[in-house]
């Protein structure tokens, strides 16, 4: 464990806590894409299949449980909670899951470290995580405005990915034969997807104006 990875995990944890708090306290999910949240729940479900078979560390297991619980409870809130679900903008959040799930599944069948169910599911979850934010970014473009909690949520998610890249660089130089191209490339793609959002977020923060994404 290095400082970059710990900071990355904590930032990731913060992003889901910010989101849960937003939904729980103001009983609203306006501006949040349910599609993205469902994809994240699928990412964690397919990545943490080994939660009960391969024990790595108490930290690892606890964090996996937190991510699974938070992602599924966010989906539950947005789908089932009688007040929250009313603020869900299903007419704007129309990104089709399958356009992301199928290509990631096919890619994982061809590009993986070992052709076993767990390994293919793990690789699928990596590719899916890289693109899971797309429905959220599309929704933000459509609604044109972004309330600061949603902005913080996407910002924290991007920061977690950037910290993970620093973690991989650190591990590459400090651990012999620590090489994971699949992880690195999908992680890089994911971080680049945030880059444009960061650009607008930083500019709005610098000019102290409300964050507006271009059409």
């Amino acid at each position: 464990m290095n400082i970059f990875r710990l900071a990355g995990d904590m930032t990731h944890l913060m992003s889901v806590i910010v989101l849960l708090l937003k939904i729980h306290t103001i009983k609203s999910c306006a501006g949040i894409s349910l599609k993205t949240q469902e994809l994240y729940a699928l990412v964690f479900a397919t990545r943490y299949l080994d939660i009960f078979t391969d024990f790595i560390s108490l930290y690892n297991t606890i964090m996996k449980l937190i991510f699974l619980a938070s992602s599924f409870s966010i989906v539950w809130y947005m789908r089932q909670h009688k007040i929250v679900r009313r603020s869900y903008d299903k007419d704007q959040d129309t990104f089709r899951h399958l356009f992301l799930i199928l290509p990631c599944l096919l890619l994982a069948l061809f590009i993986n470290e070992k052709f076993t169910f767990k390994e293919v599911m793990w690789t699928f979850s990596l590719f899916l995580e890289a693109v899971a934010i797309l429905p959220q970014l599309v929704l933000l473009q459509r609604t044109r405005n972004i309330d600061n909690l949603t902005g913080q949520y996407v910002f924290l998610l991007g920061a977690y990915r950037a910290l993970y890249i620093l973690n991989w660089i650190y591990r590459y130089f400090t651990e012999p034969h620590y090489v994971h191209w699949i992880t690195w490339i999908s992680g890089l793609v994911q971080t680049l997807l945030y880059a444009d959002f960061f650009y607008y977020y930083f500019n709005s923060w610098k000019n102290n104006v409300k964050l507006q994404l271009p059409a």
Partner: peptide, 10 residues
């Protein structure tokens, strides 16, 4: 196992 080492990240 090999899996544990390479899959220690969240």
């Amino acid at each position: 196992s090999r899996r544990e080492i390479s899959k220690d990240e969240l």
